[in-house]
Design a protein around this nucleic acid. Structure first.
Lengths: 191, 191, 191, 191
DNA sequence: CATGAATGAGACTTCATTCAT
DNA sequence: AATGAATGAAGTCTCATTCAT
């Protein structure tokens, strides 16, 4: 109980501070004190700052993917599954603004570049869950026959920007607007 | 000629190094030597590192907006203007990968947050040029009646992601594919 | 049996690691794990790291002196006793390279300085066993009438260097060569 | 004037503190303040602490070798050259106790091990100057036909120990005693 | 304007030691 | 006696910035 507790405290503190102050605005000492532990304690759980940052990303990525899969797995009509995936994802971002900001920063940093390079070789499947959804749609002729990467971009590109704008207060995404947004995304990918 | 020269050298060196190595992977000394000037010289032109970073962003943003305006200003049918704006923007990113990476990093960092905050109060116009395009489209009933922010996201969200994927080698965006992508974006915003 | 066992394990691990990696290249945690005990356990047997280091030295010094005494005590002609002392000592170093390296490092460190300072006041005995041998030799007129310290240096100086060179692989000291070396040492001290 | 000045100040301070307090008893900050410079300044002249330590050794080694060569080069009878080399070396140590202590510690530390390893491959010639002296003596039949390493040990082993003892106050090496010591050393190596 | 040596605050990390279990 | 998670002081090194030249 005390071991995972402290590890969790540290990860939570790191998420908070790194998301809010940027990857280079939060010294280890600050993370430690925010987590209620001594500076050295972090190194009982994470080999280095880099490892902490990567492990934290991996954690969040896992949770997000779990959400997406949840929607993508359902065996319902493609259109509905698409809706589900998008709304689940968008709502997750809205509900977890810190995780969202963390992930965004991670992607647009040398960590993200390295992370992608690794995926190219070792496979990983961040958006893997949607693969089947899109492939099926293409084969059924309801989705445009475009490279998967493009379909991902058409779908998640707008959602990510809107999540950010919502978090920053540029729009208020309510239930109705979210529905209309997802419809628009569908228009983008549907044949 | 020699004064603005040095300033340009510095900005160019900063763009190179900051884009490639991340905002925190390029010390001032490295930027200076890459620019062929002494460390102290940078401070003759920029008050501080932060100012350099922001000024560099401002420069790039200006050039990108100029490109967009170029496409948006033409008094041709909305559909064509939309095409023009998108292709001009996407091609600019593809042709200027360092500027693209720089801007992406800027946005997803405390600088970006602050920058947006400033915009809320004052003005900005990053996507301003498109404002009229979309407003006109809405009033003519050819574009969905959604908040401008959403329309921006529907349009630029996919483009930005695809530019990044192209730069990183995940897709190869040729003329044909770019056309199809822009068509898909149009599907997303059109009524 | 289990208590002294653990103490021995710790001293053995400390000897290994401190000799090989230097006095500052072996953290307590490493010594502990090498000894198969927990970090805190060391402090059940040794008050501090310094105490461990000094106690370990004291142990080794005792064993080496025992060897020397063994040779020095024999009531045989001086020349033979000298031979015995030297060969016993040199062979001990060759057979116990870790102890040798440990002792060398100890001497050439602040520990050694402090150790000598203590000896100045209290006692010494490191080469004490040879005292009688040399004193007898002087009085019998077979050994040069030089200060004991000088005679020690003439005898042990070469041996120590050659032990180190042998351990590091710069020479191979076989039986014959050892004999010739000891003869040379004798030439140095004999009248 | 100011550049080499500061570098010298740093090396001098490092020699003082490292020799007196041990290689691990003198933090960079202390060396810096002892040298009258800021902590960071050391890194303008030395890449790292390790580099400083090695460079300092290299410096001292050079000065000592210069002294030895001075004695060894003279084209006088072997016996006299031997005397000259030994007395020059012993006096240098006595006159420069800090350098002596520094060198001793260096040799008996991982730095020294590494240094010797390098020499084995790349040649370096610490005691090279004496090589000819001993080789000539062997060929002329006035010096024992022993490996050079052994002859070095017979000669320098006692001198090093006595230098240390003198510095620590265990003996007082005056002109007369030094002569007698060198005579004894000669007895060790002469045929 | 330009220089670049110098600064020193502050970052990351290590590790001897403690103490509740 | 034994454990090992936790501590936090201290160490090395980086780097934005300054200032005398």
């Amino acid at each position: 109980m005390s071991k995972p507790d402290k590890r969790q405290e540290i990860m939570h503190a790191a998420l908070d501070l790194l998301a809010e102050q940027g990857f280079h605005g939060a010294p280890m000492a600050q993370i430690a004190s925010h987590a209620g532990v001594a500076a050295g304690t972090i190194y009982c759980y994470f080999e280095s700052r880099d490892v902490l940052i990567r492990e934290l990303y991996h954690d969040i990525e896992g949770r997000i993917n779990a959400q997406i899969e949840e929607g993508a797995a359902a065996s319902i009509p493609i259109r509905h599954r698409f809706n589900l995936v998008c709304s689940v994802l968008l709502n997750y971002f809205i509900d977890h603004p810190l995780e969202f900001r963390y992930v965004e920063q991670f992607h647009n940093s040398p960590y993200g570049t390295e992370h992608r390079r690794d995926k190219l070789l070792g496979r990983n499947g961040e958006a893997q869950p949607c693969r089947d959804l899109f492939l099926l749609g293409i084969s059924e002729g309801v989705i445009k026959d475009l490279p998967l990467v493009v379909l991902y971009a058409m779908t998640f590109g707008p959602l990510v920007i809107l999540a950010r704008d919502h978090i920053l207060g540029f729009v208020v995404l309510d239930k109705t607007l979210i529905e209309r947004i997802i419809d628009a995304c569908w228009d983008g990918v549907k044949r």
